[in-house]
Amino acid sequence: MKYTSQLSLSVQLPDDETFQSFQSQENQPVVIQLQGFIDLLVKQEPHPTALYLFGIKGVGKSHLLHASCAYAEQLGLSSLNLSFSELAQLSTEMFDGLEQIDVICLDDIHLIAGNDDFERAVFDLFNRVTEQGKCLIISGDQNVGNLDIKLPDLLSRLSWGLTEQVKPIHDDEKILALQYRAEQRGLILANDSAKFLLTRLSREMSNLISALDELDKASIREQRKITIPFIKDIFPHIGS
């Protein structure tokens, strides 16, 4: 047993990446499509093999994929979310047998562009998933036609099913999303504090949530509420 390589599992924050916590009115059609797509699998009705989501970095694509897995699990389906941001650690062997899983999410497919082995592996997975009647939910930072993927067979399959664009989330929705997440963590994040974070930090949701995580830990440690002065203490570089 390799005890040395075991992760030390510090208690982290609850995973709340569900459809419910995806606060974006404009992207509600995307949520409905995703749910409807997974529902087709549950009802064992004919469905396209894949649903492709695209949008710029930070619009919540990863959130939607995690939420799809959570939704699938609620319905009794098996699921997996494979992120290509971890590509360096992965091997194409990772794809063996995945067609047995009901809902397979592949995040950031643009990161495999030009990597022949991975392009082939995803193409092969697509064919196996089609044969098994399971489904893929795939995200990328570009419309299929703009992806730099070299294998035309993979590109044509990506364009085959459903495609949804995830639109940028408005600032007021980001504030609501941050407040929702704060509430899930038992915190109160007042409007002015949320706005302060939004105007001083990178406005990508993932960064804002990381900041919230840090504030949460600090607020427990220092027994303080989250206020603008407290935020300035924790992130001195944005204080001025």
Partner: peptide, 18 residues
């Protein structure tokens, strides 16, 4: 585990376990 692990790790490695 879902509470302990980042969502990405949980969804990638733990969810597919049966």
């Amino acid at each position: 585990l879902q509470e302990e692990l980042p969502a990405q790790q949980f969804s990638m490695w733990i969810r597919p376990l049966q």
